[in-house]
């Protein structure tokens, strides 16, 4: 955990409350949908919704307890400091962008872009090194999946240019 001196971005209490509340809501949703499809004990054992209903119930109860506990927590403890969240974001947002772009460019091109970008930005490697690692990784993956194992992955315009 972080030193108290570092400025905190969010307290553990906030995150605890958010998490347990989300789980509680999810549990209610599960219970509701299970009731809809039948959560009783039919003539030949439990119906479709029987187990999900009780799973939801128990999950809800446990989350409710966690929510109450979280509410009573002190506000001092930091979940993540500003510095830490900055570092995590440096990985998380490029990753999100990678997944987003993947839908159009395919997995290989967007993967190469992510690797090159991250190496340059965080690792300060030379452009040549970034390009080599990025293209190399994508080529190896391409050879392995598309050619060797014949597992089709998501491909974009560049690949179709080469007839894949």
């Amino acid at each position: 955990m972080s030193e108290p001196a570092e400025p905190s971005a969010a307290s553990t209490r906030t995150l605890e409350i958010i998490t347990s509340a989300c789980l509680l809501l999810l549990a209610l949703l599960i219970m509701w949908d299970s009731r809809r499809i039948g959560a009783g004990w039919g003539p030949s054992g439990p119906e479709s919704g029987y187990f999900p209903f009780y799973i939801g119930t128990l999950m809800g109860l446990a989350s409710a307890v966690n929510l109450v506990k979280a509410w009573r927590m002190s506000r001092d403890k930091s979940f993540v400091s500003v510095e830490e969240i900055r570092l995590v974001s440096a990985m998380f947002f490029p990753a999100l962008a990678f997944v987003f772009v993947m839908q159009w460019l395919g997995i290989y091109v967007s993967g190469a872009l992510l690797i090159a970008f991250f190496m340059r930005w965080q690792g300060k490697f030379s452009y040549a090194k970034c390009a080599a690692v990025a293209v190399g990784t994508s080529l190896v993956l391409f050879a392995m999946f598309e050619i060797w194992f014949k597992v089709p992955l998501l491909k974009g315009p560049l690949e179709s240019l080469f007839g894949y």
């Binding site: 990985m91 490029p94 990753a95 990678f98 997995i107 993967g111 992510l114 690797i115 970008f117 991250f118 190496m119 965080q122 690792g123 490697f125 690692v133 990784t137 994508s138 993956l141």
Partner: peptide
């Protein structure tokens, strides 16, 4: 900084 994006991909 190399291995992290590669793992992600």
């Amino acid at each position: 900084s190399i291995i992290a994006p590669v793992i992600l991909v």
